[in-house]
Nucleic acid binder design. Sequence first.
RNA 1: GUGGAUGUGGCGAAGUGGUUAACGCACCGGAUUGUGGCUCCGGCACUCGGGGGUUCAAGUCCCCUCAUUCACCCCA
Length: 426
Amino acid sequence: MSINRPKGTQDIVPGNVERWHYLEDEIRKICSDYGYQEIRTPIFEATELFQRGVGETTDIVNKEMYTFEDKGKRSITLRPEGTASVCRAYVENKLYAQPQPMKLYYLGPMFRYENTQAGRFRQFHQFGVEVLGGDAPLVDAEVIHLIWEFYRRIGINNIKVHINSVGCSECRGEHRERLQEFLRDKKSDLCSDCQVRFEKNPMRILDCKNTSCQEIVANAPTTLDTLCEDCAQHFTKLQQLLSLAEIDYHINPKMVRGLDYYQKTAFEVIAEGIGAQSAICGGGRYDGLVEEIGGPTTPGIGFAMGIERILAVLENQQKDSEEETKRGVVVAALGDLAQQEGFKLASELRKAGISTVMDLMGRGLKSQMKFADRQGARYVLIIGEEELTKNIIIVRDMSLGDQTEITRDKIINFLSDKLTNSELLL
RNA sequence: GUGGAUGUGGCGAAGUGGUUAACGCACCGGAUUGUGGCUCCGGCACUCGGGGGUUCAAGUCCCCUCAUUCACCCCA
């Protein structure tokens, strides 16, 4: 019996990893463009951090955490999301003492113990942004604009940006009462989950996927109906700014996200064609969170997007692949002596910045040519006994199909002149 | 956690109880001397996911198990 990778994990192998590199590069670039700095926090944290930070009533904490006890009897959890850790690090490193707001981003693996399906893994990767120490709608707008611009840059177009305001601790209370009032006589018709939610977190009944619950809740008071003066202004201002930035957003009063810490602004980006798990980005404002985990009162807002889901979207909308261009050099050597010379030549070429590969299997010339072709090499440098004695090298142009002889001492210059920068990279 | 689907070589995929398990792609080798992409030839399943059972006979039927996958809940 061979050993397989754990359920819900994946190996990212050559031929695929390049897409990750591309996204990672774009992520770093856009964060730099918007003035966000990277923060790296541990992959595992004290379990309590997530219990307090993410919220005891959430699915993440209730059933999706990878929790274990370490040898010191500490309860440890593989991070299921990034926000709690970033806030913890913000407090622990006293980043609040630096100029505010603190604009941070992270990129890395997250872990959630749940059944897998299209777009859902046990180890998956998120790119996320957190802004701590700024409570203005302008901050919300900048964060959403970063998302919008990011998708534009990587060529994702069929997306919908949903926004909502779930209110703050003050207006949330009023909403809760009005909603419970509205639902009281209909309670028995709700699904079993929602009957529990009725007491614990009635707001979440609003976005229950159960169709009968949706009907019941169709005319229920939303959080937008009960926003306090402050929250209402914040939301209005945000909409103005988004319009100004020409972001095509949709207000969805029923969108209530599953994490306890959201206040005021909540948003989600939905893509098409990647299966049932269509949210490629989710986030919101969490003004009480830093305080909750023991820090100073600090407003915050952030989002996380799933790398795997972005890749799925890109793959889904990908047009016919672009024809690959010939790049780099392959050294084909025949026999022991020539192989030594080839090895030396390859070292020199690489030192000169020319991407070079040589056969390591001692194959015949025909095989080496085939190998060079597969590698997509632009030139093959052929060295055999004859060339060795004559002190020359055969340079074969793989796209033109012709070849010339170049003396050994001129070969580096010859290739440097011939190859453009893009052709040097394999 | 719950439900459906599927498990045959590296990948895709025939096979619907009976001799040595098709085929395609990939990979490796060859087609007279040291030359690629086309063509031709050859090589590549000692566990047909694993275990048990039915049968003279099972990849093909039954049971169990594991895995993968899609979906629900929820989310990235």
